[in-house]
C-alpha cells in the first residue's frame, strides 16, 4: 500500500537552513546537507529545499548545494525558490533535484506549469500555494506571503492541476508557525477537488496534527520545518506514532 509521506522542509539562505514564524523573523537551524542526511536516516520520505536567497550569487550557492544533496542523500528531494523559467528547472534537475516547486512564478506565468510538464513530466512539477483565510475565502499570496493576489486557493489549485502540476503543496499562512494543527478542512476540499497528491504545510506542532492532516485532511504528505529542526518531534517517533494510529507510513 502506498505510504503517507513525511517531508521535512529546509529553508536555505546563504547556504544555511532557516525557518520563519508566520513568514517573518528567521531563526537559524543548521547545515542543510547534514540536516537532510540526518532526516533521511531517521526515516523522512522526501526532503524539500527552498532557496530564499534573492541574489544571483545566492542562486549559484544553492545550485552547488543541490549537487551536494544529490550526492549524499538517497531519498527524493524537491527544490524551490527563485524558479522563474524553464532554464532554472533544467539547471536544478541537472544538479540532481528530483522535482521542482514553483509558487509566485506559476501565479505570474501559469504557462510555466505546462512548459515544465511538457519538457520534464508532470511528476517533476510541484505547484506550491501560499494562501491565507480572510473574508471567508482562501486568498493566494505571492513572494513568500507578502503580496496578495486576486486568486483563490481552490480555483488556482484546480487550474494548476489541469495545466499539468504533479502535486500541490498547500501552505496555510493562517496556520503557519502557529503550531496548532494543519488546515484540515481546506485540505479535505483539495482532496475532493483534485486528482493529484496534496502536500499539507503550515501548522504542525504536535504528532496528532500530522495524523489529523492524513485522516481529516486526507493529505498524501505532510510537510513541516521547525518541529523537526528544533528537535521538538523526532521523525522516527512520529512514524511509530502514526503507524500505531493506523496511518500507513514507511517504517
Amino acid at each position: 500500500m502506498l505510504a503517507k509521506r513525511i517531508i521535512p522542509c529546509l529553508d536555505v539562505k546563504d547556504g544555511k537552513t532557516v525557518k520563519g514564524v508566520n513568514f517573518v523573523n528567521f531563526r537559524e537551524a543548521g547545515d542543510p546537507v547534514e540536516l537532510g542526511a540526518q532526516y533521511s536516516r531517521q526515516g523522512a520520505d522526501e526532503l524539500v529545499y527552498l532557496d530564499i536567497t534573492a541574489s544571483h550569487e545566492g542562486r549559484k550557492t544553492f545550485t552547488e548545494l543541490v549537487k551536494k544533496v544529490a550526492a549524499n542523500i538517497s531519498i527524493p528531494f524537491t527544490v524551490g525558490g527563485g524558479i522563474n523559467a524553464l532554464a532554472d528547472v533544467e539547471r536544478l534537475l541537472a544538479a540532481g533535484a528530483d522535482k521542482v516547486s514553483i509558487n509566485s512564478s506559476a501565479l505570474r506565468n501559469p504557462d510555466l506549469i505546462e512548459e515544465i510538464a511538457k519538457n520534464f513530466g508532470s511528476q517533476v512539477c510541484v505547484v506550491a500555494i501560499d494562501a491565507n483565510f480572510e473574508n471567508e475565502r482562501w486568498l493566494c499570496y505571492l513572494n513568500g506571503g507578502r503580496i496578495p493576489t486576486d486568486r483563490f486557493l481552490f480555483d488556482w489549485a484546480t487550474e494548476a492541476e489541469s495545466r499539468g502540476a504533479g502535486e500541490i503543496l498547500f501552505t496555510s499562512m493562517t496556520h503557519d508557525g502557529v503550531k496548532d494543527g494543519y488546515s484540515n478542512e481546506a485540505l479535505a476540499c483539495l482532496a475532493d477537488l483534485l486528482h493529484i497528491p496534496v502536500i499539507a504545510s503550515g501548522g504542525a506542532g504536535k504528532m496528532e496534527h500530522f495524523r489529523d492532516a492524513f485522516t481529516l485532511g486526507r493529505a498524501d504528505a505532510a510537510l513541516a520545518a521547525s518541529v523537526f529542526h528544533f528537535g521538538e518531534i523526532g521523525i522516527a517517533e512520529l512514524k511509530d506514532y502514526l503507524s500505531a494510529e493506523g496511518v500507513n507510513v514507511r517504517l
Binding site: 500500500m1 502506498l2 505510504a3 520520505d45 511528476q123 486528482h195
Partner: peptide, 16 residues
C-alpha cells in the same frame, strides 16, 4: 486506470 477518486496517477511515493 484509476478505479476510485483516491487513485492518483502517477503512482508516486513509497510502496511495498
Amino acid at each position: 486506470i484509476p478505479k476510485r477518486h483516491e487513485d492518483k496517477v502517477p503512482h508516486m511515493g513509497w510502496n511495498t
